[in-house]
């Protein structure tokens, strides 16, 4: 977190130093700041900032693909499937051991990925109730959430 703020500060300083400030210049500054921090990460006590940054980038990329896929599948369901062929139901997902912020992020991502929306979090923050459009194979849905969302999120929050 500290390293991220430092990175932003470097980007803003770069913006002030440039002749014509613009969006592109800001991103160049941000990138240069990232390279700088990555190069001197042994001296700054920012920990594993570069690794986390890369993990976030990879997650965002993967998530964008999932998000577009989700929309195509919703469009297909809405336009072409008959009501009777839907099998909606609730499934539970185990989130014990995750921090509050991670649960928040995970529930956002579940809402935006194919076939599932978050409905509720239990009082003790241990299970997540998820509504699935096609709940014929709850185990497969759990595994998919595990592989495509939970593990990538944990990679950059820890």
């Amino acid at each position: 977190m500290k390293s991220f703020v430092l990175n932003l500060v470097i980007a803003v300083i770069w913006l002030f130093l440039s002749k014509q400030p613009s969006t592109g210049v800001f991103f160049i500054g941000f990138f240069l700041g990232f390279v700088m921090i990555a190069a001197f990460s042994a001296l700054l006590d920012g920990g594993d900032y570069p690794r986390r940054c890369l993990a976030v980038t990879r997650f965002v990329g993967m998530f964008a693909v999932d998000f577009v896929k989700a929309n195509l599948s919703v469009a297909r369901t809405v336009l072409f499937e008959r009501r009777e062929s839907l099998h909606p139901d609730f499934i539970t997902y185990d989130i014990s051991g995750m921090r509050r912020g991670e649960i928040l992020l995970l529930s956002y991502c579940i809402t935006l990925t194919p076939g599932t929306t978050t409905v509720s979090v239990s009082e003790d923050f241990r299970t997540l109730v998820v509504h699935a459009l096609d709940a014929d194979a709850p185990e497969a849905i759990r595994r998919q959430i595990d592989r495509r969302l939970r593990q990538p999120i944990l990679k950059f929050t820890r």
Binding site: A70, V74, A75, V78, R83, L86, P88, H131
Partner: peptide, 21 residues
Amino acid sequence: GAVRLPDVLCRSHAVAKASTL
């Protein structure tokens, strides 16, 4: 989707994803 899908929860699927994109 808000018209065709059978109940509130299914409709929220369509509205949340499609209108965001």
